[in-house]
Design a binder for these strands. Sequence first.
DNA 1: ATTCTGACGTGGG
DNA 2: CCCCACGCCAGAA
Length: 110
Amino acid sequence: MKPESLNFFNQVYEVAKLIPYGRVTSYGAIANYLGASRSARMVGYAMNASHSMENIPAHRVVNRKGLLTGKHHFDGTNLMQQLLESEGIKVLENQIQNFETIFWNPSKEL
DNA sequence: ATTCTGACGTGGG
DNA sequence: CCCCACGCCAGAA
């Protein structure tokens, strides 16, 4: 077994769980926080596996533009957006409004 | 082992 | 801002 890689997924989940209510972050920000700045895609890949865990607020993780690129992976077509809006986050055309304002950077704020 | 894929990011134009 | 090409790396086939 490779504890390292297993840890990577786990760490991604840990950080995701720490995202404050009503805030969002990016895959790259999480990757950078974990010291794997070149593995931003792996963060997304990890989120895909996070389906088994309900404690992971995957809807609070978007790409660097604040675009809901992963909404397709949720059950409904706009479940991700609904979850975000239920937290007071405005979403228009898969784009989070005031993204820079509600953006949560783990490297800085954690 | 090899190839392909992808919930990404960066840099150049 | 948009578009394009490239790098990146863990899994799946």
